[in-house]
């Protein structure tokens, strides 16, 4: 575990972020701040709107109101792709990969996009071996190099989760949103993913959405609790753990499950 101290500079901020589908409010005036180098967890019961919140931040969903700031710039109306280019990167709760392609090709698409060569059409992929080498290098970092030539569909789910993370790293994020990175992974394999997350470069501000409280308390220095689309509490793990309201709403719900 890296000892990372909040430098106090907000990297990602939302102010009064709202989203409703008709009469259904899935995000209610969410004010949220993620500091540079943070290790921050977002928790909440099922249906609390955690993934919606991530989608609003990344621009996958248009907000009904409120603003998103990245490193001080208002990005509320920047496209999803534009936000990625500015260093706001996410992984998906359910693997969202190029299933018909090989692991290396998956990485290649991210690297070439990030390197700004993806729109070139007159020369072949092979004319830029550096981009391919970089994709391979990322696979090595996550010990996926032996799977490089395999199709995504041939990989066990846990290793597919690693590819999700490798793609995110290929985009050199300043802010990384991990949406339940270990979801669906057998517990025997989940340590691979947790190790990968622990090994993330310190300078990246990380927001992790997670159900497993062990992971949250091990990883996070700060926790935000989301309930029914609204922020219930934010604080250190100790503060959250002793917060009566959180216990009744969140842990109480966990008790039922």
């Amino acid at each position: 575990m890296n000892a990372v101290v909040d430098s106090g500079r907000p990297m990602l901020e939302t102010r009064g972020l709202r989203k409703n589908f008709g009469a259904l409010e899935v995000a209610r005036d969410v004010d949220f701040t993620l500091h540079a180098g943070a290790r921050h967890a977002l928790i909440g019961p099922n249906g609390a709107g955690k993934t919606t919140f991530v989608n609003l931040i990344t621009g996958a969903l248009d907000a009904s109101g409120g603003d998103v700031f990245l490193n001080g710039d208002r990005i509320t109306h920047v496209s999803e792709a534009g936000r990625v280019k500015r260093g706001l990167v996410r992984t998906f709760q359910i693997n969202t990969l190029f299933t018909g392609l090989t692991v290396l090709e998956n990485l290649y698409l991210a690297v070439s996009e990030h390197a700004g060569v993806a729109a070139r059409m007159l020369r072949p992929v092979g004319s830029r071996p550096k981009v391919v080498a970089e994709a391979m290098h990322l696979l090595e970092m996550l010990q996926l190099q032996d799977d490089a030539a395999r199709l995504i569909t041939e990989l066990p789910y846990g290793r597919q989760r690693l590819v999700e993370i490798a793609i995110a790293l290929a985009l050199e994020p300043r802010v990384l949103l991990l949406d339940e990175p270990a979801a669906g992974v057998p517990s025997a394999e989940s340590h691979i993913i947790l190790d990968a997350i622990s090994g993330l470069p310190e300078e990246i501000a990380v927001l992790i959405i997670e159900h497993d409280m062990d992971v949250v308390f091990r990883f996070a220095e700060k926790i935000t609790v989301l309930v029914s689309g609204a922020v219930l509490a934010t604080g250190t793990p100790d503060e959250i753990g002793s917060n009566a309201e959180v216990r009744s709403v969140y842990l109480g719900e966990g008790h039922h499950a």
Partner: peptide
């Protein structure tokens, strides 16, 4: 193969 993922790697789809 996956439009959502293309958006998420920053591609102006």
């Amino acid at each position: 193969e996956n439009v959502r993922r293309m958006h998420a790697v920053g591609s102006p789809v």
